[in-house]
Design a binder for these strands. Structure first.
Length: 479
RNA sequence: GCUCCCAUCGUCUAGCCCGGCCUAGGACAUCGCCUUUUCACGGCGGUAACGCGGGUUCAAAUCCCGCUGGGAGUGCCA
């Protein structure tokens, strides 16, 4: 039987990086095993689920390079792929359990349940449902209520024995007896509940491996009971450790950017995010740390998951991003930059070759795509911002000499830009005629021409800077 | 509270299942040095970890127990 895996997000918000990570693992597993990847929308919480979030999440997934073999947009033969469209299926299966005597109708009110929980807690018992409507003496009443059209929830008779789960990453897990009370399958409003839908769908969609976050580990007990009730085999369970913040707490908004769309907006390379996320809790057999999904799909396997939670550290992401950015073709980068920079910006008026040269020059220096903006601004700024270090260089006796020389040379230039060859001639002349060399030479020229004490290599930078800007800077410095 | 899970450098991790080759390896970050001379990139090097306590064993990061710490769950949320 070929592998079938699914990613099952709830459309209640943007795609979270934790969700993206499990999607990646599922994708990789499917690819590695020539299997099928399914997208199932878990929108049984009508209150919080929104179609627009589903659209957004799918778009983010696509941006990350994750495509599905079966999904709401691309139905296979196990649809529908939105749980909200499968209600009658769940109802049917719930009724089957009722008929088999494995589940029952419950007509308790919220207040009743609340009181029940409170009582149990006070008495030091686990806050389980007390099984009132399971009791024979209420059967007739239940039938009557049902006949009268009253809405009741359907509860599963939780078996009170101990269960053993063989989890692919966590090994043998023993759930002791009496851990859960009778739980709801169908709400009194007729809507099914997560744990139930999940089992029915995984069963019907013939899912072979469930790869999901460790937060679902305890849900697995209930789900095992349901598989048992349906006389079905449990898929292979793969519970991956969670992502946490630098304070070791559950990852949340206060830890910074936790949703994928934010990274897209900040122009991170999607393959970098994917690469980094993949490495959080999984390791490459050869300990490689820069790769694409296509590259590692053949070697991806379930044996290399770490069991402990991983702290999400954006510093390493930045580095990974830089590594990927350097591999991207300059033409593509220019296109992205065009889209990234505001339409009114002078950058758009530059010739294509100039843009390419800029990208080539700066791509080695930036980790964030957006960090290129200050670099670009620096090319066009006539300003000379004096700080301590700059003033020190300006105080060197050689610097005014260099500036004066450059000023004269610049007057000779009739073109819009200085050629690299011309610039190199200047350097030679300063060396031979002015007899300046070493640090005073390079820093003197750099400061005179750029107004900064740092930046890319001069012979690449200067040919990209307009002559009038260079003139203004030198003049600025001489006065 | 109860239940389950987890525990190697600041961070991500390799090693653990099948004890010796581990004076614990790699990567990010950090520090220093080198590099047609700056920041960066690159190269070289440094600082830095087996949570604690007991066992078992000739030998333990690796196996067992306890403690401590952390995480998750405990819903008519997913």
């Amino acid at each position: 039987m070929s592998a079938r895996v699914r990613f099952a997000p709830s459309p209640t918000g943007y795609l979270h990086i934790g969700g993206a990570r499990t999607a990646i693992y599922n994708y990789l597993f499917a690819k590695a095993n020539n299997g099928t990847l399914i997208l199932r929308i878990e929108d049984t919480d009508l209150e919080r689920s929104k179609r627009e979030y589903e659209v957004l999440q799918v778009a983010d997934l696509k941006w990350l390079g994750i495509e599905f073999d079966e999904s709401p947009e691309k139905p296979g033969k196990y649809g529908p792929y939105r749980q909200s469209e499968r209600t009658d299926i769940y109802l049917k299966y719930a009724q089957m359990l009722v008929d088999k005597g494995l589940a029952y109708y419950d007509f308790c009110t919220d207040a009743e349940l609340e009181a029940m929980k409170e009582r149990a807690t006070q008495e030091g018992r686990p806050p389980h449902y007390d099984g009132k409507w399971k009791n024979e003496k209420y059967w007739e009443e239940a039938q009557a209520k049902l006949a009268a059209g009253e809405k009741g929830a359907i509860r599963f008779k939780a078996s009170q024995k101990s269960y053993i789960l063989n989890d692919r990453v966590r090994g043998r897990i023993v759930f002791p007896e009496n851990m859960v009370g009778d739980f709801v399958l169908i709400r009194s409003n007729g809507q099914p509940v997560y744990n139930f839908c999940c089992v029915v769908d995984d069963m019907l969609m013939k899912i072979t491996h469930v790869i999901r976050g460790e937060d679902h580990l305890s849900n697995t007990l209930r789900q095992m009971m349901l598989y048992e009730a349906f006389d079905a085999t449990i898929p292979e369970m793969v519970h991956v450790s969670l992502l946490i913040g630098n304070d070791r707490q559950k990852l949340s908004k206060r830890h910074g950017a936790t949703s994928v769309n934010l990274y897209r907006e900040e122009s991170y390379a999607p393959q970098a995010l994917v690469n980094y996320l993949c490495l959080l809790g999984w390791s490459h057999p050869e300990e490689k740390d820069i790769f694409t999904l296509q590259e590692i799909a053949p070697v991806f396997n379930l044996d290399r998951f770490s069991k402990s939670p991983a702290i999400y550290d954006i510093e390493k992401l930045k580095w990974v991003n830089g590594q990927h950015l350097r591999k991207i073709d300059n033409e593509i980068l220019v296109k992205q930059l065009d889209a990234f920079i505001d339409s009114g910006h002078w950058f758009h008026k530059q010739p294509h070759d100039w843009k390419i040269a800029c990208i080539a020059l700066f791509k080695e220096q930036i980790q964030f795509f957006q960090e290129i903006i200050p670099h670009l601004e620096a090319l066009h700024s006539k300003e000379l911002v004096r700080d301590e270090k700059l003033n020190e260089i300006l105080s060197w006796p050689t610097t005014p000499q260099i500036a004066a020389f450059l000023s004269k040379e610049l007057e000779q230039i009739k073109t819009h830009y200085v050629e690299a060859a011309t610039f190199n001639q200047w350097m030679d002349k300063i060396k031979t005629e002015l007899k300046i060399k070493g640090k005073p030479l390079f820093m003197g020229v750099r400061v005179s021409l750029t107004g900064h004490d740092h930046g890319p290599e001069l012979n690449q930078l200067i040919p990209l800077t307009p002559v009038d800007v260079l003139k203004a800077r030198v003049k600025n410095l001489l006065t």
